[in-house]
């Protein structure tokens, strides 16, 4: 009897802790999700100003958003700029990651640092620097100005993901392709690229998300072709109405969709035990 009591003691003492922990997690989720939820709710409300929900629903802010056009045009800009930037970043990222994975050359670490550097420089400084550089070539103020600047910025995350995937490829895979008669290019396109594809897709999505969200650099170089974050900023400065909530809801849906894609493609790579660990040839 006493034995049983003793054995139950630790569990009973832990119970409030478990409850507390669960409460903490719940509070964290509320803290994170409540603003987004309210924003979505407000976008469907009749009232101009934030008020207690339930005083009438409508889609008028969505109508206003689309009839006004400025924000939608900016969204269109963003939907061109971000995919193009992400694609450019993925292509550069793949080749850079492959070169760094495959070869030991002088300047290898320098190359790696240079690609990662834009992530470490404050965006404000990068933005001013890009404006100065691009205007010297007469490239400022266009949608492709943002593309160029964003490629420089988002190659780093894209390459990081691709590098991770490449590091999971055993060296013997490429050697086997050569051994079976494939040239370097053939083995790259038929073995390395398919193997890395999930990493490239994940890197692309991450680069897209980074570019889609990026405000400061875009604000400096976009001129009269603002991307969405820039346009939203301009809108807030002028007036504020629930059209923004409507736009935010749309973006939230889009971003959610993309992040879901990132997770689905990335998580299998991240949690996967390195297949090369057992496959790697032991040195003889």
């Amino acid at each position: 009897m006493t034995m049983a009591l003793e054995s139950e003691m630790p569990r009973r003492r832990r119970d409030p802790l478990v409850l507390l922990g669960r409460g903490y997690i719940a509070a964290a989720f509320v803290f994170l999700l409540l603003p987004i939820t309210t924003l979505i709710i407000f976008s469907f409300q009749k009232n101009q100003y934030a008020s207690i929900p339930g005083q009438g629903w409508s889609l008028r802010w969505y109508e206003k958003l689309f009839s006004d056009g400025a924000l939608v045009a900016a969204l269109q800009n963003s939907l061109i700029v971000s995919p193009v930037a992400a694609t450019g970043a993925s292509i550069i990222g793949f080749f850079a990651a492959y070169a760094i994975h495959r070869y030991r050359f002088p300047g290898r670490n320098l190359l790696l640092t240079l690609i990662m550097l834009p992530m470490l420089i404050p965006a404000l400084i990068l933005g001013i620097a890009f404006l100065g550089l691009l205007s010297r070539f007469g490239l400022e103020g266009k949608w492709y100005s943002v593309v160029v600047a964003h490629i420089v910025l988002v190659t780093a995350p894209a390459m990081a993901i691709i590098q991770l995937r490449l590091s999971q490829m055993p060296a013997s895979l490429e050697e086997a392709a050569w051994n079976l008669g494939a040239t370097e290019w053939q083995s790259l396109t038929r073995v390395v690229l398919p193997f890395t594809l999930s990493g490239i897709a994940g890197g692309w999505l991450l680069a897209f998300t980074f570019s889609f969200d990026e405000f400061i650099i875009a604000w400096f170089v976009c001129g009269f072709s603002p991307t969405l974050p820039v346009s939203i900023y301009a809108y807030i400065v002028g007036s504020a109405d629930p059209s923004l909530n409507a736009m935010a809801t749309i973006i939230f849906a889009l971003s959610g969709l993309f992040l879901l894609g990132v997770e689905l493609l990335l998580i299998p790579i991240l949690i996967r035990v390195k297949p090369g660990a057992t496959a790697e040839e032991a040195p003889h």
Binding site: A176, W178, N179, V191, F195, P275, A279
Partner: peptide
């Protein structure tokens, strides 16, 4: 001669099968 032109084939200890095929 480069690797891909030699008439010899290697069978790897870890088999080195292409996982995507």
């Amino acid at each position: 001669q480069p690797v891909h032109k030699r008439g010899v084939r290697l069978v790897w200890q870890n088999y080195a099968l292409f996982p995507h095929l």
